[in-house]
């Protein structure tokens, strides 16, 4: 299938499947994203339910990362990026006139593609968020938060003896778990993950996937991934993006066994991507 064919299939497309859910944490409605003149997302509407893992998949350049970044306004840091439409977090529009991105990002945390620990100690990496948001009243409390976060990220046993060693000295997989620990130290409600395993080896990937499954109990997670196996393993729902269109949203099982849309089928069977 080539691009012209697929363009025809998604012209004036209405998302197929079940983009909306009942127990909503984030709901995006009619979201358009522009980079300067270029439109990157066309009219995407999607609900993300509480305590679920939603996987955003699609070929490169389809807008899945862009969509993810609109959910905590990380796109604000890009000058030419404009977002139209509404994104509601617990029924509050995060693009409202008086919304401050600082508390928003404390509620909607993010883990990036490449592990990006600060060039500080492991302890300071995790403690940074709680420090700037004033989450700990005392040193003891801060120590507790750091320990709890590292434990929850499954890193505690590996680093407890060298908390003051630089975070950049860890292995790639450990660094990424450190970044996850750093994110959950702020106690967010939603965690956005932008291809968190793409720079990691299979063993580190397996650990992170396990971790995602555990984190679901407490957090809502949206994960962008290029690996369909990963999407199948960790997510409850899957959203398929294609050329800026949200093509299909369905329970993960359904997407990978009986996709509704031709393009989804083409993608998961490996005809492009």
């Amino acid at each position: 299938m080539n691009d012209t064919n697929s363009m025809k299939l998604i012209e004036n497309h209405k998302t197929t499947g079940e983009p909306f859910s009942k127990d909503v944490k984030i709901s995006a409605r009619n979201v358009d994203v522009f980079y300067g003149e270029k439109q990157a997302i066309y009219d995407a509407s999607l609900d993300i339910g509480k305590n679920e893992v939603i996987a955003l998949i699609g070929p490169s350049g389809c807008g899945k990362s862009t969509f993810l970044r609109t959910l905590n306004r990380m796109n604000d840091t890009i000058d030419i990026c404009r977002v139209k439409g509404d994104i509601l977090l617990d029924n509050e529009n995060i693009y409202g006139a008086h919304v401050d991105t600082v508390p928003l990002r404390a509620r909607v945390g993010m883990v990036f593609q490449k592990p990006n620990p600060f060039p500080k100690s492991i302890y300071d990496n995790v403690a940074y968020g709680p420090r700037i948001h004033g989450l700990a009243q005392s040193r003891v409390e801060l120590d507790e938060i750091v320990e709890k976060s590292l434990k929850r990220a499954g890193l505690w046993n590996e680093v407890k003896d060298r908390l003051h060693a630089p975070g950049t000295g860890l292995s790639g997989g450990q660094q990424q778990r450190l970044c996850i620990a750093r994110t959950i130290a702020v106690d967010p409600e939603v965690i956005l993950m932008d291809e968190p395993c793409s720079a990691l080896d299979p063993i580190a990937t397996a650990k992170i996937e396990e971790l995602i499954d555990e984190l679901r109990e407490k957090y809502t997670i949206a994960i962008v991934t290029h690996s369909m196996q990963q999407a199948a393993r960790v997510s409850q729902r899957t959203a398929y993006f294609h050329l800026g269109q949200l093509v299909e949203v369905n329970p993960t099982e359904k997407v990978f066994t009986k996709p509704e849309h031709k393009l989804t089928e083409a993608y998961i069977t490996g005809r492009f991507g």
Binding site: M74, T77, M110, N116, P117, H133
Partner: peptide, 23 residues
């Protein structure tokens, strides 16, 4: 300064000032 460091700080909810002066 690598943009990934800025992103990390912004992603944690650091304000512009904090990103600049801490990182």
């Amino acid at each position: 300064v690598p943009p990934s460091i800025r992103e990390a700080a912004y992603g944690l909810g650091a304000s512009k000032n904090q990103v600049v002066f801490h990182h």
